[in-house]
Design a protein around this nucleic acid. Structure first.
Lengths: 331, 331
DNA sequence: ACATCGAAAGACAACGTTGTCTTGGAGTAG
DNA sequence: CTACTCCAAGACAACGTTGTCTTTCGATGT
């Protein structure tokens, strides 16, 4: 009833324990007939090696598993990252442990520790905590950051060109004649939110329009946009610096019936953006490329690459679809 | 340089190996001062127990890890399932290994075996293969199916009420006067596609309209819809029995400029369906509930519940938004 | 003061596997 | 025919931990 061991296999095959080990590990120094008998015994007993025991003896201490910590696996951006990482891992026969952080600093630390304790060969983290210095203890477990840069700890990092992308979005609005351009952003403590705000400022110089920070999620963004557009001197264009904020703003403009008057460029593409009316102009990130680059970097480190921390920057793409090309109209 | 062991901790704390083991495992029979010394040593050496070795000796052979095999973690339905499962797992301190199957039968088998080999405590599978009988060997590793029922093997299964949901959608169209209602479905071998088709037939009795099977993905659906709507005797309403098919059909109707003429009900909700024009009426599934129920069932089994296989059915919800309420118009 | 008991702490074996060393027997050269 | 080489296959220890058994020592009861 208990799980069969190599010894059981050896007994039924009539060979020594070690011979079974050799066959299971594909060592070539086994006579074909013995190997066949062993394989038959393995099959008949449904033997599967005990990884714990195996791990303990092996030199190469690899679990062929990596850990991935993302913001929320059910959000399209994280999900695309996840998928790209999975694909790279699959091609190397590596499995993936995933968890969502939900902007919870403590969860980041706890899960990073827990994954490492499971001896994942490496970790990919979209950092949420304000400080990653807890990772300095993680000798022997390479870490790569995605989407956001770390602080208090250096490692390979793969990010979008947030500043440049945001600046490009805002310049696009300026090119269509807009001067009062509002900024709507997520929690300021999120590094990418800060970067995108900097891009916005850069593009506008002194002429920055109304600025709304710390909008987290669709509902908050919708509410804030409604208030913003109702007050005097409302902007003629919006730059929404995150996915859900963009959608919230779209809802608000709809409710006000001003979706064809107020121009809008969002940071980060989202499904069906092209089917809305007007279709939403966005600065698209490329989560698949980002995820792939992060996985590649991690595997390089796992394979022993030992250079200084790298920052890999993945360019964004402005996709004009209509909402960003609306001309100014009198309010 | 090598990873510290309990022995190293014991030496620096000046106690025996076994005492360290007791402290690490929280056994109460250790004098407070010794325990404190041990904890200090653990801290200073950054000792982490070797799970492999631990697993080997323990009776309770639990890795506190489950495996989850989904269609594609980057598709919103799978991602929502994943997230719900993760949440249940988190509340039990269990980690999650995830992988995407992409309708690849072999991958399902290989990954199920690989996950089991990693001694996951249980498995949640959205089956893609035509036959799950390979699971009969999986004694000791409970399995729960989500989204689709298995064949050739019985286990707890959590599915939407596909037949009833589809029938309801079609009756809704009938109630708005439609008689020529087309069915657009995914690969017929997918059990849910079959179920939804049966619901469609059930609602229409003899009067079934044009039927298009084996549309996989947005592009195929769009192309098929274009062709369908251009031919003589085109339907006045569409029932699209899957997410991406719905979106493909929406695109096609747009391109034809007939999105306000042809009624549409889709199976499975999708983000922004309410923001399209017209907003898309759907039969919503509840992936969060499904995932949660599946995780609950799995953990019950892991905890030793040993009843006959259960089928848990999660009701769908018809959400009228506009596209399904369009009246008939002359073509 | 001595026997008895109990609790804490240590000694030791065992888990299932792999690394290394040893054995044995066939093959080859002189 | 002997001596040597080579290679497959087995014996055995070791990995880091926990279960069980034993020892130690102080407390308790008479």
């Amino acid at each position: 009833m208990a799980r069969p061991t190599m010894n059981d296999v050896a007994r039924t095959a009539g060979v020594s324990l070690k011979t079974v080990s050799r066959v299971v590990n594909g060592e070539p120094t086994v006579a074909p007939d013995l190997a066949a008998r062993v394989r038959a015994a393995v099959e008949s007993l449904d033997y599967r090696p005990h990884l714990g025991a195996s791990m303990m003896r092996r030199q190469d201490r690899r679990t062929r598993t990596i850990g991935v910590l993302l913001e929320d696996v059910s959000n399209p951006f994280s999900a695309a990252l996840h998928r790209a990482i999975e694909d790279q891992a699959r091609s190397r026969g590596v499995h993936v442990l995933v968890a969502s952080l939900d902007e919870d600093e403590r969860r980041e630390r706890d899960l990073a520790r827990a994954f490492r304790q499971r001896q994942t060969d490496g970790l990919i983290v979209a950092p949420t905590a304000s400080d990653q210095s807890y990772l300095t203890r993680f000798t022997g477990t390479p870490v790569v950051f995605v989407d956001r840069g770390p602080s208090g700890f250096q490692a390979d990092t793969v990010v979008s060109t947030n500043v440049a992308g945001a600046a490009g979005a805002v310049r696009h609005l300026v090119a269509h004649g807009h001067r009062r351009i509002a900024f709507l952003g997520d929690y300021q403590r999120i590094p990418t939110a800060g970067d995108r705000f900097r891009g916005y400022l850069q593009a506008l110089g002194g002429r920055a329009g109304p600025v709304l920070h710390d909008l987290h999620g669709e509902v908050a963004a919708e509410r804030a946009t409604l208030a913003l557009m109702r007050r005097a001197g409302a902007p003629t264009a919006l730059f929404t610096s995150q996915n859900l904020i963009t959608i919230g703003a779209v809802r608000a403009l709809r409710r006000l019936g001003r979706h064809h008057q107020v121009a809008l460029v969002g940071f980060d593409d989202f499904p069906l953006a092209d089917l809305l009316d007007p279709a939403v102009t966005v600065v698209a990130q490329h989560p698949a490329r980002i995820g792939r680059a992060a996985a590649d970097a991690l595997f390089e480190r796992i394979d022993g690459h030992d250079g200084p921390p790298r920052e890999i920057r993945v360019a964004t793409t402005l996709i004009p679809r209509g909402s960003g090309e609306l001309p100014i109209r009198g309010s």
